[in-house]
Design a protein around this nucleic acid. Sequence first.
RNA 1: AACCCCGUGGUGUAACGGUAGCACAAGUGGUUUUGGUCCAUUCAGUUCAGGUUCGAAUCCUGGCGGGGUUGCCA
Length: 556
Amino acid sequence: MAENTTPASNFILDMVKEDVRNLKYGGHVETRFPPEPNGYLHIGHAKAICLDFGIAREFGGVCHLRMDDTNPAKEDQEYVDAIKEDIHWLGYDWGDHFYYASDFFEQMYECAVELIRRGKAYVCSLTPEEWEEYRGNLYVAGKESPGRSLSIEENLDLFERMKRGEFGDGEKVLRARIDMASPNIHMRDPVIYRIRRVEHFRQGDRWCIYPMYDFAHPLEDALEKVTHSFCTLEFEIHRPLYDWVLQALEWQDPPEQTEFARLSLTYTVMSKRKLLQLVKEKHVNDWDDPRMPTICGLRRRGYTPESLRRFSEMVGITKFNAVTDMALLEYCVREDLNKNASRYLAVLDPVKVVIENYPEGKIEYLDAVNNPELPEAGSREVPFGRELYIDRADFMEEPPKGYFRLAPEREVRLRYGYFIKCTGVVKDADGQVTELRCTYDPETRGGSAPDGRKVKGTIHWVAAATAKCGEARLYDRLFTVPAPGTGDEDFLTQLNPDSLKKVPVMMEPALAALPAGTRVQFERVGYFVMDPDATAECPVFNRTVALKDSWARQQK
RNA sequence: AACCCCGUGGUGUAACGGUAGCACAAGUGGUUUUGGUCCAUUCAGUUCAGGUUCGAAUCCUGGCGGGGUUGCCA
């Protein structure tokens, strides 16, 4: 269970606090997270999960997990399992309050019958096309369906026959009898049951009529004895109907729905349709591609549950349609990983360095601290030898002003190692640097000079003789613009072509031996996580997020 | 055009009707065996116009701006 985080102040917290103080619902708080199992959870869901589970915990209640499976055409067990896994991974648990909306179909049916008995629902035989006309529109009131004048007995009979399967799909619907002139179109006799002969992934063909969300949801909440029902802003206009259903059935202590703004993030997309399109058209590898904003994608990218919870807390809960900067999410994972990730030496785009005055064949072991922020993480030994690799970016033949790293005749420190000075550059026919000749100062073992002289730069390195070669996947933002596809359909044209670069990486031995999922920092490069696909022969690391680099920023 | 919701630094978010604060981003300086971290510091805000009030980001009216709603999806 996610520990201790007291939710940041927000209007929902205040409201619930007030309800508890007034002993509404006897002072109990029961919430629910009700995903439809038709896709994978994303970071936007994480925000809702943190709210739903967080509020329940704050007030000593339970948050239910409910699969809102009222539309058999779209749902599947695969998604149920993935959703459960992601919520647990985030650090939340629903105890024994796991439900399927479809387990309530019988009660919902009874409620619909009761509505008919009370004259508050009727069977409508209008076709969808006809209804378009009857419904009116935003500016024009609707007119009454002929079904409205049926007797209660006729409606009871028709609905019973709908259930028995006497009518074809779409031939009839059950409507709530509310107000055809309401300015809120959802109150113009909304459909509450439709006929749909599709096999339900759990109910099979037991039912051919299925309740609509607007009817089912308040009943699900009420039947589970939920007190506070949080959802996103687009359901705001449905709330009168939510309340109407429970009031029409004279439900005691009905739950109350409260809406908050869904999460929007820069440089990515959150809509299920667009995410699905990215997967289907192979712009990404799958739902768990590390570039995806899905929870499984972020997990694979190396994001921690803690960082996602912290992010949810920082974005807050409001009714304002905000767009949160991706930089905040990146900050949250850096904040966590900086404290907890061990540091290792790894070299991307390696260039060989030969230390001319170091004995051939000699290997010595140097002490390296695993995490300067966390002394209890201990230390390890790093092998050092005459031939090393350093990152190509750590050498410049003609260094510009302000460049602190290796250059001809310049001395730098090898982290945990020695001071070395570059004495020669070897190039191939194209002028590409293939090897650097250096000398080292034996007096500077461990990285400090007895004579007190300083160097400006410290670079990372690995010994060639013991280096393990693997692959580093450098993931970047999925889109090049803060708000992809605002013009809509064109969002794919704004995909970042550099969102994934695979480069060979030379690693110190201890790094290659880490178990999958371990999060580390490659010094001076970024935070990485070992990919689940990694093998002993080829360790694969995904870059979670780059280190801040003031030098790179300066250059721009 | 109808109804509903929402407007606080570049971004996100706080503030019983009583000193507009925090974080991210950006800039500067310092510490540092990671150009990381850390520390210090700067920049920058209540959409507008009226009204109520001793006092308004907060309450009222209107304007402006943004979002939502016309599925037998959720």
